[in-house]
Design a protein around this nucleic acid. Sequence first.
DNA 1: TTGTAAGCGTTATCAG
DNA 2: CTGATAACGCTTACAA
Lengths: 359, 359
Amino acid sequence: MDSDRRRRPTLDTVAAAVGVSRATVSNAYNRPDQLSSSLRERILETARSLGYAGPDPVARSLATRSSAAVGFMLPQGLSGAFSDPALSIVLDGLASTVDGHDHSLVLMPGDATGGPRPSIVSRAQADVMVAYSLPDSAPAFDAVAARGLPLVVIDQPVLPGSARVEVQDYAGATSAASHLLALGHSAFGILTFSLHPDGASGPVTFERRSDVPFRVSRDRLGGYLDTLEKGGVQPDNVPVWEARGSDRELGRLGARWLLTRTPRPSALLCASDQLAFGALQAARDLSLTVPRDISVVGFDDVPEATYSDPPLTTVRQPLADKGRRAGELALKLLAGGRPPRPTRLDVSLVERASTAPRT
Amino acid sequence: MDSDRRRRPTLDTVAAAVGVSRATVSNAYNRPDQLSSSLRERILETARSLGYAGPDPVARSLATRSSAAVGFMLPQGLSGAFSDPALSIVLDGLASTVDGHDHSLVLMPGDATGGPRPSIVSRAQADVMVAYSLPDSAPAFDAVAARGLPLVVIDQPVLPGSARVEVQDYAGATSAASHLLALGHSAFGILTFSLHPDGASGPVTFERRSDVPFRVSRDRLGGYLDTLEKGGVQPDNVPVWEARGSDRELGRLGARWLLTRTPRPSALLCASDQLAFGALQAARDLSLTVPRDISVVGFDDVPEATYSDPPLTTVRQPLADKGRRAGELALKLLAGGRPPRPTRLDVSLVERASTAPRT
DNA sequence: TTGTAAGCGTTATCAG
DNA sequence: CTGATAACGCTTACAA
């Protein structure tokens, strides 16, 4: 059962074998310039033959008070989260940034509370945390604060002392809605992802529209609704469907509902491209032609938006930059920097072929 | 710059404040039964007021020689990896399993070598590693071995001392190809993902078909080709396209090429559902109707296969189980267990509407 | 260029 | 139920 429990070699083992002190062996790994290269070679060689794989990461972390890892907190489980390519792109930007600095990434999936459990956060070996689109009052935030860890927040509002990177969601939503209004549309439907972290899907009741803890959902939905209202469309008359995630199939489901209302919307505003792709699908299912019969606009501008059928009119946000920027901020906080003023990334409407004047 | 550098409280700080020994405070957190609940309450209360967030994870790890984390090694960067929902599902199964045991997940993205850099692996704070579909001789494996960490391998062949979970890829591919043969097809095209970790995309030359280091690609491609040959189809006459990832758009690209060969294939064998969805798209682009003009079969059976247009005939593999099983194995190795005999998960052909008899 | 010694914050063993 | 004391494996002044 512990046949391989024969003690693994340590710095001391190697030091003893070579006949030098432990500090010297440590230097061989961490400060090559502190010893003759011949000695260093000899040390490394001996280490290899002893089966010593280099300084133990945990012990090193304890001594340096740094674990060289950034924690990434998600609002939900992995499979839900990754059904949206937007997250993958952000995470990739983040990963490549921290990876380039020899830091690793600790993933903390969320549960029904809309974020990782506090116990997970308290025990995570990371020296900076990145929160991705967590709901406003996720318990995970308290755990981070209790540990005094630096925090960078993506897509969430002010949290004292944290660094932030955010996107002009409200403005983006506004431009999308204005675009449709300018095309002459007056019957709308809105497809949004989670408003509350309870995993509900369905038509959105009026109460559910208030106190939305997900800032992104709040801003996009608010931007759509406010703009429509300014354009003379009664928000109460706009059907809204909430999907439990940003997922194509969920979008298809919701869009089917929206497109079977009476009167039928001539334009659909979607909170993400994935949802919009689902809407495209739903339209096909109902033998409606986009954009002739109905216009669809998305949000994000993921790569597929260029290739979809038809190519999607959408609000572009710089996803990879978002991740990279979050990575840089994390690294900066790690280096002892103060949180700089929030990075606000721009969005812009990209007009493709899924929208057309109302006929 | 270090205004918050005022030393964080430690076990000793709390112990002193309460007037007990450090061990007692430790017990308050780790062995509630070892002290009176009133004392425990008092300790926890004081800790809270002192801003002590509980035992430091790193120090705890050093003392217990366990970091309560499992490392997950990927063959490529995150964005590439996550464009395939199959990975998300596997990872979710893994995450929920280890999460349930209060372990966290350390992600190690790969680079051009087809796996994470050895330096990353050497320093990762994890006490068991899971390799996901790495190429046969990834340098990452050496790093794992050097550290003497237990290893569980998903979708890769024998590595001495490691636990394995794998899927009957060859058999699955065989059944897919047989199905098409039985339908009377004789002109085929094959769409595969990476054969070699060099990120190349394009028609597959003959040399490239040998010494394929990715077992999954090797088995699926081999299963297709061998079966076709047994069915009387000359493998040399079967065009094969290699996509650099399992991604819908890359599949569309490859399928476009395959579908414009002369003679045009009447059936496409795809190494994954994502690739197959791309093929469906490509067929539409070329005004071909599936399955009337061409039959398409995928591999994986991701949820979307049920809903695609048309629903996809594909080889089902139990993705979530794969992840869960890997998680259980990791936990078992962690507990000191010996690697059990490999878990082999079954596959089965699911016939939907993307295949039809040759007309 | 190399060695000494003092931490880093815990857990664990074993008396009391 | 509580408390010394010894690990855990390493980094890092500082001294030689």
